[in-house]
Nucleic acid binder design. Structure first.
Lengths: 238, 238
DNA sequence: CAATCTGTTAACGAATCGGTTAAAACCTTC
DNA sequence: GAAGGTTTTAACCGATTCGTTAACAGATTG
């Protein structure tokens, strides 16, 4: 009863699909079969993101993806072609998501130092909240960006941030608060790297240095250090 | 004929093993069979390093490792137990190698700024020359350091670098050239991250920003930026 | 309501996976 | 030179892998 509300609330055109699926999962007989093409597609994408992030491309299992998506395995192939094409679809959506989040930042509304601080904090927060994004990128790099190479519309979406950061650096240098001659792409990669490495390699680092680097205190310390490092560098005019 | 020299040059106790193996590979009949336990062990480790680095733990194939090591597959299990134990052995050796290289650095013989510069340059160079180390760590982190947790003698070997960096920071602060209050572990992680991210994610970064970040010029630019970032931060006393 | 397209299903199959068996060949020791 | 332990081999195994087949059911259109 309450379950039904969920389906309707989502505004699904074929709302009954969700209910039917829930019934079928519970093993009820006389399950009402219904279609939900769009829903099936995103359920597969969600399940695939989780699976690829958890086990990598090589360790991911299509059967597990299908099971978690509550879809027939054949559907993966119907919608995406094969395992690798599905991986690319997952990757493209992940990039799309972070770029969308970046767009909302409006870094040029504040002073240059504050703008940089916000970019550092955002990057940190985003990686922290989306660990799957990190492992996904690691997988893609393991395969030398083989999938991304086949993708279009990836290059276009990624420039804006660099352009914005470049403008911040220009303004800061003009105002005399920042040093001149800093390359925006290099700095962007640095900010990303400072957060990425700590989080992506958190497990081995914690093990090797015998500290719990996932603890709240360690995280706060890290963000503070990153911010100090970047702003300290930029405001040192020698 | 010249081949034989290689075996002797290596100082192998059972030198004939190498020759026999080479003959067998070439498919010669009446192949002289010989034993070489130590050699077999390291050939397996080398082959496994390559395979795990190339395909990750999940994507690695034991048959391929055996083939490349020119050993029977049974030997992997004879010496290491199973695939995962072999992975741990490879990982342990990789850590051992980088710590050994770090020991040779003698960073305290030079001025603090120069010491930091050398550490940055070394880290960069080492990652550049050992890309397998990066992908290996990525794999281990994907699995949440599951294997490393079982390992002993990992924690002990990793402290010295942090201690040395701590001493450099102390001396620099005492001399008034460095800012005070910088945590050695945080800075070490930062230096590593600045190099690691650029190299480990080189493929996706190059793709996404439409630049060849593996080109010599891009590499030099990166090292220069990293060095400036770290020293610029440390020498900014505010 | 018939024809047609789209989405979904169960079942299967060939290839490959990590791991094992059982026996043989090499090497050391006495 | 025989005994006994260590290293190596070929063959094999059951489970699992990704991907496919063929038929069916819901939706759409005339």
């Amino acid at each position: 009863m309450a379950k039904n509300g969920t389906a309707e609330a989502r505004g699904a055109t074929h709302g009954s699909g969700v209910v039917a699926r829930a019934r079928r999962r519970r093993g009820a007989r006389h399950a009402v079969r219904t279609r939900d093409p769009a829903g099936t597609r995103i359920r597969i994408l969600d399940a695939a993101l989780r699976e690829f992030a958890r086990h990598g491309l090589g360790g991911a299992r299509v059967d597990r993806i299908a099971a978690r998506a509550d879809a027939n395995k054949r559907m993966l192939y119907y919608y995406f072609g094969d395992k690798e094409a599905l991986f690319l679809a997952v990757l493209e959506r992940a990039y799309e998501d972070i770029r969308t989040a970046e767009q909302k930042l409006r870094l040029l509304d504040v002073a240059p130092v504050e703008g940089v601080r916000r970019l550092v904090a955002f990057t940190w927060r985003y990686y922290l909240d989306h660990p799957e994004f990190l492992t996904l990128l690691n997988s893609e790099n393991l395969h030398r960006a083989r999938h991304l190479k086949r993708s279009k519309n990836i290059r276009a979406t990624n420039s804006p941030v660099i352009a914005t950061l470049g403008e911040i650096l220009r303004r800061g240098a003009a105002a005399g608060t920042f040093r001149a001659g800093v390359d925006a792409l290099q700095l962007y990669v640095s900010i990303a790297g400072l957060a990425y490495f700590f989080l992506s390699n958190n497990y081995t680092l914690s093990q090797v240095f015998d500290r719990d680097l996932a603890a709240p205190a360690a995280r706060e310390e890290r963000l503070a250090h990153m911010t100090a490092l970047v702003t300290g560098f930029l405001t040192n005019r020698n």
